[in-house]
Amino acid sequence: MMEVWDLALGILCVLLSAFVFYYSGTFPKFISGDKELPGPSFFPRFVAIFILGFGLFLIVNSGLSLIKKREKIRFLDNLDKKMLLKFIAVLSTGFVVEPVLSLLGAVPGLTAISVFLMRVFRVKWIQSLIYSLALAVFIYWIFRGVFKLPLPEGKLILLFRG
């Protein structure tokens, strides 16, 4: 199993270094006095060479042992659908936080996100409601109250105020 991942990593390394070489071609040259010195593209390319080397090593190494084993190539053996959904659920909170907070305001928004997360983590409804509210208030208190960090107020609340 590991060999497949190694092979994938190796290929990724090769692609990445190729991209770095291609893209850094657009960087300007650096001329100090009358000499051209290592410029913006020098270091990324330097790193990319090593990445390329290790990538090729991984490809050869894992390729050889894969051929020896003649194992069926499977990528996502224990990564079932349900878990994938949960992954997406967790990661998505980072991207919905802006609209949710600006719509609901900090405390209700954070509570909502927290309840969602706790449900994903299989906490019971009532428990997750209580814990989430406490957690949201705690975060709000620390960041807004103690540290004066501006958190969004929420369009809904502003609507009520007129």
């Binding site: 936080v97 954070l110 997360l117 706790m118 299989r122 997750s128 957690l135 975060i139 960041f143 540290f147």
Partner: peptide
Amino acid sequence: LRMGVVMAAVVLFSIIGSYA
């Protein structure tokens, strides 16, 4: 304390921490 609660708290703190 349930692990799920702790995990949710970690995610929430991570979000607000990196936003802040």
